[in-house]
Amino acid sequence: MNYLLLFLAVALGYGVALFLKTKKIKQISLYLAFSGAFLLAITVFELLPEVFETPSKSIGIFIMVGILLQIFLEFFSKGAEHGHVHLHADTKDFPWLLFISLSIHALLEGFPISEENNLLIGVIVHKIPVAIILSFFFIKAGYSRIITVLFLFLFALMTPIGSFISENSVYIDTYHTEITAVVIGVFLHVSTTILFESSSNHKFDLSKMIAVVVAILLAYFL
């Protein structure tokens, strides 16, 4: 069921984009702020205490590795992980660099998901607006529907695959804490960037502040 929900989050984003065509949605930045705050809160409330059960400076190193890895991935994805696609689609070939960078990010997202935490909800909330914006990019750039659907289908598979590997690999289980720390770094970078970029002039208005506070409270009481 978890695998299906992760897949359907991307499918839902594509469906919303098709329904809205290429209309501007004011609410998308509000939902981005909510999703960023929710993901950040889940990371702080659930993943950080897990990796620091036995305090160690090496955990901090792995978190920093995750932050640096996400910065490196965004060199190729141009910020698609946090809802901004700045690519120039001069050709309509399959965008391999975007796909590979997003796939690595999505694969890592699946590793810490378990029944002991609420990360599944956080990742779903994060994926929907990203899928909407990715879909808008493909539609506006004039990509064929076949390439668009293929890209989103393969992208939608990555997080369930990551979760499956995590649950069934002894090697991943052995280094679960270290891998989770890397993912924490990825989430910290993505979620704080979403919060920073989802506000014009990097300032929060009242509606965004309310969205952020509600997201944090929901994550805490889950």
Rank of each mutant, 00 (worst) to 15 (best):
N2Y: 12
N2C: 06
Y3Q: 12
L6I: 02
L6A: 03
F7E: 02
A11F: 10
A11C: 03
A17L: 10
L18V: 12
L20G: 01
K21Q: 15
K23R: 15
K23I: 00
K24C: 06
L30S: 00
L30D: 06
A33G: 12
A37E: 10
L39A: 15
L39V: 11
I42D: 02
T43V: 10
V44Y: 07
V44R: 05
F45Y: 15
F45I: 05
E46P: 00
L47T: 01
P49V: 04
E50D: 07
F52C: 02
T54N: 14
I59S: 09
I67N: 01
I67K: 01
L69W: 03
F72S: 11
L73Y: 07
L73K: 09
L73C: 12
F76T: 06
F76D: 04
K78T: 11
G79L: 04
G79N: 12
H82V: 01
V85Q: 08
V85P: 02
H86L: 15
A89T: 06
D90C: 02
K92L: 15
K92I: 05
F94K: 06
W96A: 12
L97T: 02
L98A: 09
L102Q: 11
L102G: 13
L102Y: 00
I104G: 09
I104A: 05
H105C: 09
A106F: 05
L107S: 06
N117P: 08
N117G: 07
I121C: 02
I121D: 01
G122K: 13
H126Y: 05
I128E: 02
V130K: 13
A131L: 13
I132C: 04
I133H: 09
S135T: 09
S135R: 02
F137I: 09
F138D: 03
G142V: 13
S144R: 06
I146Q: 14
I147T: 10
T148K: 10
T148M: 14
F151M: 06
L152Y: 09
F155Q: 13
F155W: 08
T159D: 07
P160M: 11
S169R: 07
V170M: 00
I172P: 05
T180I: 04
V183D: 04
V183E: 01
I184V: 12
F187T: 03
V190E: 01
S191D: 08
T192V: 10
T193V: 00
T193R: 11
L195F: 07
L195G: 14
L195R: 05
S199N: 13
S200Y: 12
H202F: 11
K208C: 06
K208H: 10
A211W: 03
V212E: 05
V213P: 07
L217C: 01
L217S: 04
L217F: 09
L217V: 14
L218Q: 07
F221E: 13
